[in-house]
């Protein structure tokens, strides 16, 4: 029910984002979802990929500071109000969202929302109870390869 996300620390310099992505490309690792948080001085690259274990050790061996975090993927219909419904429900349960991003995963008419909750277990339980579809990691990743 939860997905491993890889975060990579980057200095905010032009051309810098390409370095870890080039490394993954050379190793044939495809990136399924991505978000970049940045400040004036540094950025945090967050990646969703199928082979996260291998990607993590490759990046680490190449000297990057890497961290694995559990995120919760929620399946919604790709129409106006899809995200808002999830946010409203999370708000009602007082679930704290650290950040979120969305990607489509090449599934027509559906979107996957990636949430970083402060309490991922409680979030999964609540959203499931509220009728949302929290995706399983394996079938989700398999669907796109």
């Amino acid at each position: 029910m939860k997905l491993q996300q890889i975060s990579v620390f980057l200095e905010n310099r032009s051309g810098h984002l390409a370095e870890p992505l080039d490394l993954l490309a050379r190793e044939g690792i495809n990136i399924l979802g991505l978000s970049l948080a940045d400040t004036a001085e540094f950025g945090i690259l967050r990646l969703i990929l199928r082979d996260w274990g291998r990607a993590e050790s490759l990046l680490r061996e190449a000297g990057w500071v890497v961290k694995l975090t559990e995120v919760v993927p929620v399946d919604v219909e790709d129409h106006p109000g899809g995200l808002a419904a999830v946010l409203r429900s999370a708000g009602e349960a007082d679930l704290k969202i650290e950040y979120m991003y969305a990607f489509s995963l090449r599934r027509p008419g559906r979107a996957a929302l990636i949430f970083r909750f402060a309490e991922p277990d409680r979030a999964v339980a609540h959203l499931t109870r509220a009728g949302f579809r929290v995706l399983e990691a394996e079938p989700l990743l398999a669907a796109v390869e």
């Binding site: 975060s7 620390f9 540094f42 945090i44 967050r46 890497v66 961290k67 950040y99």
Partner: peptide, 15 residues
């Protein structure tokens, strides 16, 4: 230099 011990996926934590 950022170490794995202090690194976080959250901007606020790093700030």
């Amino acid at each position: 230099e950022v170490t794995p011990e202090v690194f976080s996926d959250q901007v606020r934590a790093l700030e």
